[in-house]
């Protein structure tokens, strides 16, 4: 389980954020004493740091600079400042991503998992029920047969695979698709899911995707 450390001085936001992250299967902790932020953040040994810019004592950009001297822990800047200057500055100090408040929570989670994956730099071959998932080729194979997925189907499948066993809402799937420049509408999502289902069935995984009325889908 990845540990995420939240540096945010607004109490309400950091508590909700921690809850959001815990609900999504991360371990979340936050900073409460900003007097000694540098040591606290470094001592937390987190896998990823979510950092606001407007924080007491050292501001986020300075803190980021300090942290970068010691460690390569991924940092996502989360701030209410919408200006290119802050983004350019943050990125040049070594931030891995920059998100402005208010953000769509699903998008935030997508970015977190993307940054974590990049940091882990694992070869992205995963398996599902004995099927090899090949991201680069965009295909599934069971050793003998290989089934090519379209880009949309791959995005949907990957998203569900990361959350295997728990409910994925249509809304989250839509966000994942749109985040990958696939601006599809509702009908297209339905079509993509049913195609994905039949492709999985052909590979011997019948009923892999279960529909939950009014809630979403579960990959078994």
């Amino acid at each position: 389980m990845s540990r995420i450390y939240i540096v945010e001085d607004d109490r309400s936001i950091r508590e909700e954020l921690a809850e959001l992250l815990r609900n999504s299967g991360y371990e979340a902790e936050f900073l409460t004493d900003f007097a000694n932020s540098r040591a606290e953040v470094l001592g937390a040994k987190a896998d990823l740091i979510l950092m606001d810019i407007n924080i007491p004592n050292l501001n986020g950009e300075q803190l980021l600079k300090e942290i970068r001297k010691e460690t390569d822990t991924p940092v996502i800047m989360v701030t209410s400042r919408t200006s290119e200057t802050d983004e350019v500055l943050s990125m040049s100090y070594g931030a891995d991503d920059y998100i402005t408040k208010p953000y769509n929570p699903t998008i935030l989670l997508l970015r977190i998992s993307a940054v974590l994956k990049r940091a882990a730099a694992t070869v992205s071959v995963q398996t599902y029920n004995g099927l090899q998932v090949n991201d680069a080729k965009g295909s599934l194979s069971d050793g003998s047969r290989e089934m090519t997925l379209t880009k949309n189907e791959m995005i949907i499948f990957r998203f569900m695979l990361d959350r295997k066993g728990s409910i994925v809402t249509r809304d989250e799937l839509m966000t994942a698709l749109w985040d990958n420049d696939e601006f599809v509408n509702d009908n297209a999502l339905t079509v993509n899911i049913s195609r994905l289902r039949s492709k999985l069935a052909e590979l011997g995984c019948e009923d892999a995707i279960e529909t939950r009325k009014k809630q979403g889908y579960i990959l078994r």
Binding site: E19, K101, P105
Partner: peptide, 17 residues
């Protein structure tokens, strides 16, 4: 504007949670 975004962000997270 930066200040008002904080409660909005907070509410958005609450609405999601």
């Amino acid at each position: 504007v930066h200040e008002i975004k904080l409660p909005v962000a907070s509410l958005q997270l609450m609405a999601h949670n």
